[in-house]
């Protein structure tokens, strides 16, 4: 086992490090990372951000939204929680979770916390979730990562993941809501987050474990990977499932109903109907919206380019954009 300290609370840097040691710089033994993040919402590989995350809440509270390469549902992470990662060659075709979770339950037991494994590859204490786990596999390598709720802001977690799903249709994989608890509340003796980390890392690494120190060259490439593969709009929104969404704007000048087909984060088709009065027809609006990112600013720019301001009785392009995208 080789421990690598990423020294960063930037989720994209940490995801970049996972990818780097998986694909670009495989080491000769199992790699183990133990890291944490600034407040972050991580959606699963095939989830729709709009169906999982309260984006307005996230923006107002400085919470980053990123997409993982692994499956499963959305999790909220913050400096009160820890993330662990194991990276190694996939030994067999069979997918295993127990292999990676057993050392973690062992370390928790040593600290006096009895965690059990539920049917969804989560760890629970007293029936409440303390850890979610997921994997991705590529090129004969496996990345297993999991979360540990140590002293996470569970109210913020609930608020950020409570979302009005509007009228969205997609084939996305929805999150499963579970009751959660913090490990710190179950420790027989109080312990701070850093001491907890030190104990877990020591237990998992064992006496035979070694440490690899990230070189400046590694660090540069990891930062690049983090930016390219995880921090971009394309990664968070452009790689999600296709969806159809219906939005209605009720204005003093009438009602506008927008039916949109969004693929790779971009509006592919748009139909506009309603009892509004305009010198442009619905088709003109549809054509203007097709091809633009499903984002408030992009939609407003497309409507302004069409000259929508002033063409609809008592409805501005800004108001329309607000109705179309939160």
């Amino acid at each position: 086992m080789i421990y690598i300290e990423t020294g960063s609370a930037d989720v994209c840097y940490n995801f970049g490090a996972e990818y780097y040691f998986t694909v670009e710089k495989p080491l000769e033994d199992t790699v183990f990372l133990f890291w944490r993040t600034t407040p972050t919402l991580m959606v699963g590989r095939y989830q729709n951000v709009l169906e999982e995350v309260d984006r307005a809440y996230a923006a107002a509270h400085g919470i980053r939204i990123v997409r993982r390469m692994s499956g499963g549902g959305t999790i909220y992470t913050d400096p009160g929680g820890w993330q662990f990662t194991f990276i190694e060659d996939a030994r067999e075709e069979d997918i295993q979770f127990q292999r990676y979770i057993a050392p973690v339950t062992g370390a928790l037991a040593e600290l006096g916390v009895e965690a059990s494994f539920n049917g969804r590859n989560d760890l629970t204490v007293g029936g409440k979730k303390i850890s979610g786990n997921a994997q991705y596999r590529l090129g004969g390598r496996v990345v297993h990562h999991g979360s540990l709720l140590f002293d996470t802001d569970l109210e913020q977690m609930a608020a950020a993941t409570t979302v009005d799903r509007y009228k969205i249709q997609s084939k996305s994989i929805p999150s499963v809501r579970e009751r959660v608890t913090n490990i710190a509340w179950h420790l027989p003796a109080p312990m701070d987050a850093e001491a907890f980390k030190a104990k877990i890392v020591e237990h998992i690494l064992g006496p035979e474990g070694t440490v690899y120190v990230i070189t400046p060259e590694d660090g540069r490439r990891i930062r690049e990977l983090g930016e390219e593969r995880f921090a971009s709009w394309e990664s968070t929104y452009g790689q999600g499932p296709a969806f159809n969404i219906e939005r209605v704007g009720r204005f003093s000048g009438g009602t506008m109903r927008f039916r949109l087909e969004v693929k790779r984060g971009v509006i592919r088709q748009a139909a506009v109907s309603g009892d509004f009065f305009a010198t442009l027809d619905g088709e003109a609006f549809g054509n203007a919206l097709a091809g633009c990112r499903y984002e408030r600013d992009a939609v407003r720019a497309a409507l302004e380019a069409l000259g929508a301001d002033g063409t609809v009785y008592r409805v501005s392009a800004e108001e329309m954009a607000k109705a179309i995208v939160d």
Binding site: G44, Y46, S70, G71, N121, N133, Q135, Y136, R137, L138
Partner: peptide, 12 residues
């Protein structure tokens, strides 16, 4: 890519 039980596999 295929997802099954929280695991995403790249299939070659």
């Amino acid at each position: 890519e295929v997802e099954t039980d929280k695991v995403v596999n790249q299939i070659e």
